[in-house]
């Protein structure tokens, strides 16, 4: 399946674009997506934290991703 991942802040700068479309196995988990992206973009592994958001909620590691989900990578937030 194809997943589209929105990127923000330092994650956007590391990857060099504001969204990524990638092919993932059916049933890919949030943790699996993170592992793949850290392999492809090693600088992501140097961040203090990196979360996956699915449809505006933080996703637990074992959450399965679907093609129509709105997926985003959330590097360490620093609002306020």
């Amino acid at each position: 399946m194809n997943l589209t991942v929105a990127l923000f802040g330092i994650a956007r700068e590391i990857v060099g674009q504001s969204s990524l479309t990638l092919t993932a196995p059916a049933g890919q988990s949030a943790a699996g997506l993170l592992a793949d992206l850290r392999t492809q973009y090693p600088a992501l592994a140097g961040l203090r934290s990196l979360a996956v958001a699915v449809n505006n909620e933080y996703a637990a590691a074992d959450v399965a991703l679907h093609e129509r989900d709105e997926i985003a990578l959330i590097p360490p937030v620093s609002g306020g």
Binding site: F8, G9, I10, E13, G46, L47, R48, A53, Y58, A72, I74, P75, P76, V77, S78, G79, G80
Partner: peptide, 22 residues
């Protein structure tokens, strides 16, 4: 400050840094 997806980049006279990223 812990959960809302907003990111702050500080601009100095000689560069920029994403706050708390590392």
């Amino acid at each position: 400050k812990e959960v809302v997806p907003i990111w702050k980049k500080e601009e100095y006279e000689d560069g920029t840094v994403w706050v708390a990223a590392h």
